[in-house]
Design a protein around this nucleic acid. Structure first.
Lengths: 200, 200
DNA sequence: TAGGCAAGTGGAACCAGGTTCCGCTAACCA
DNA sequence: TGGTTAGCGGAACCTGGTTCCACTTGCCTA
């Protein structure tokens, strides 16, 4: 494996001090802007909040997706890491899957506009989509495989499909008449094999 | 019931001939543009196709939603009218509901970008959302009530929620790895009561 | 400690798409 | 046939994303 950026090592720590400071400021500004105005908040607003020019944002985060990923990386990682843990702790793989999906849903519904952005076909969000898939797809696939192996779920549903479906259902959470969690619950229930055909 | 626009009656047919012609041209141009470029196609493109100025579009269809509604009105009406028919023809209310939802899904997945527009929180699509709800919510509610009365589905799911959930799941149909129909199937399956608690 | 220089910055300028506005055109009526 | 005015076209404006480059400043070396 090749290191991407050189670790905190001898040969010059790379970025200038002010640049590092700005990056941190920007992350904080973006995070707070996302909370109040959603992930679609205009770039200029974030720049203003951070007290920098728009050029500075683009230098650090060439696309909006990069900024979103940077802001939410920790939480995505935590979700990814929870997968194996849940599988070990839960009574059945299907239960683990259901609990894991709950984590995912919690994450999405609390980030105003994130679910929308994730499914948007806008090219600006390409990298966001890719990152989520990269990180969460294997986890989801693992849980799904385990449940399938246990004969608990109907076959033929892919991890991609499930993630995407769940993501889709989270769009519009916030609307009072729409309970995204309940819809996801229905989806996960539908995933379950109705009658066990052959315990073998 | 009050007529919306005055039928083809005596007292002045209202609009000028060229205006009526333009409206028809615009509808045709928009329909074809929607097919090739999705419902998000730039207003200017539609105007060019129709050979009119953008002002003319706004005169006839003040918001994009008005245009979309006008283009798809027939199909939405057909879907709405199919509800009662299906209920009468199907073996069980749940079967009718499933078939009706299939119609709805067929409609959405064949209209590139429509599902996205429907769920968008963009104010421009307010009227679109409202129209769909207006027309389809009562139909869905009727089917849902019938299924609930037959004890076939789990209680507590509202028609609004179901419509919205199904609409959401249709976002991104077109993506080869995502089968919206299958996801909706799962959702509808999850809606089904697993074991009938009390036949009563 | 000063000087040089490239990394980094700010924000004006540009682009795209939606929306408004108004002078002109041409249907329709008397 | 001429007057009135609905309706038209499209330039202009607005918002928000993106690029670019002259200027600033941190850092390194002499």
């Amino acid at each position: 494996m090749v290191d991407i950026d050189g670790e905190p090592d001898r040969p010059t720590p790379r970025k200038r001090a002010d640049a590092r400071r700005n990056e941190a400021t920007l992350l904080a500004a973006a995070a707070s802007a996302f909370v109040t105005s959603g992930v679609d908040v205009p770039v200029r607003d974030i720049a203003t909040r951070a007290g920098v020019g728009v050029g500075t944002i683009y230098r650090h985060f060439p696309t909006r997706a990069d900024l979103i990923v940077a802001v939410y990386r920790h939480q995505v990682e935590a979700c990814a890491e929870a997968g194996p843990t849940l599988l070990a702790e839960s009574d059945t793989p299907h239960a683990a899957l259901a609990r894991w999906i709950n984590l995912f849903v919690d994450f999405l519904v609390t980030k105003h506009g994130l679910a929308e952005a994730l499914q948007s076909d806008n090219a600006a969000f390409e990298a966001l989509h890719a990152y989520f898939l990269d990180r969460l797809l294997p986890v989801c696939a693992h849980l799904l495989d385990a449940a399938a192996a246990a004969g608990e779920i109907r076959p033929g549903v892919t991890a991609f499909e499930l993630l995407r479906g769940v993501g889709n259902l989270c769009i519009g959470a916030g609307e009072p008449r729409y309970d995204a969690r309940r819809m996801v619950e229905l989806l996960v229930a539908g995933l379950r094999q109705h009658q066990v055909t052959e315990p073998r």
